[in-house]
Amino acid sequence: MIAYIIQRLLQSVLVMAAVGFVAFSLFAYVGDPITIMLGQDYNETERARLAAQLGLDRPFYVQFANFVANAVQGDFGISYRLARPVNAVIRERLPATLELSLIAAFLALAVGVPMGVYTGLKRDSWLSRFFLTVSLIGVSLPTFLIGILLILVFAVILGWLPSFGRGETVQLGWWTTGFFTKSGLKALILPSITLCLFQLTLIMRLVRSEMLEVLRTDYIKFARARGLRDRAVHFRHALRNTLVPVITIAGLQLGAIIAFAIITETVFQWPGMGLLFIQSVSATDIPVMAAYLCLISFVFVVINFVVDLLYYAVDPRLRVDRGAVGGHG
């Protein structure tokens, strides 16, 4: 168990180092920060002074080491565009994205898993066919189109829900939340539906196909032959075996939701990190882009790590204590 965790941690560190290198390379290869900060008109002394101030005159590996040392402490420098520390800017935007993503992930799982189980168990019912047809639409329509359609119907035509922004938020320390005001909750509805739809249908289809697979296995047939109730066969044995592979995908999808929030946040002008990223890209604000890249990768790595641990908890075959295997005829 310990060896397993250490191995996983080492892998995570390697992945983060690689990502850090890519993020760092942005500084060297995407645009010239001095031009970006000083504009086109500057003289050589100004340039040299700023280069020294930013550490750009030092050798490549020293710069990278500095970058990593700072990044580990959450320091990504000063935003070119906003002229404020990057971590302060990100911290402002983080709650909006996390709240939206968590609600979307919750919806995707809470609706997707039961729908997948239902369509797997009641393969031929008309409701299953309906779900499957609708899910095809969910998978094939682009996210921004779904967002725009929802805005058109519920904001423009019916006028029930806001079409942009977070509504009123409440300050809890440095965290801002939209969970405690009516307008905040209303503002969450359309973006979270838009954001979760793709993952919801994906999870539903995945659970369904895994469920069908598991229902064909010998141990399910044998469970029926033992006379177990349908409830036990379906929800104790079949569902649990279905969830083993689903955990992995669902975990990765949670990461994908946070990353895909870029599109949804743009459509709904949601003041989160995704919107910040898009604004930074158009302004070539490299420190913010690098920070975003590292943060998203970090989220993926953490999720992966948790998924591996969960896997370990759910599947006893990974916890083999070798002493007990074999030996007897």
Partner: peptide
């Protein structure tokens, strides 16, 4: 029929490696 299975008629299948649910003791 379910109540008869296991209670009045038991079954043994061909492959013991796949007859048991791997996630339960």
């Amino acid at each position: 029929l379910r109540r008869i299975r296991g209670r009045q008629i038991g079954a043994v299948f061909q492959d013991p490696l796949t007859s048991l649910d791997p996630l339960f003791t």
